[in-house]
Amino acid sequence: MTRRVTAFAALLLLAALLVFDQATADLNPYRAPPLLALGSGVAASGGFCGALPD
């Protein structure tokens, strides 16, 4: 068996994640933030591993 199998398994995992995600949440590009945070005037609010709960 070669890495071809496991690499495609990784892609399948990603695909499964995205299918599950789309079944549980909707996308709306019209609610998207500005292209760049820099200069947008909007406070950064994304999840980050260093952040404590609000």
Binding site: L35, L36, A37, L38, S40, V42, A43, A44, G46, F48, C49, G50
Partner: peptide, 9 residues
């Protein structure tokens, strides 16, 4: 950092 407003994580 510039696009997301937060560092790489």
């Amino acid at each position: 950092l510039v696009v997301a407003g937060q560092p790489w994580g």
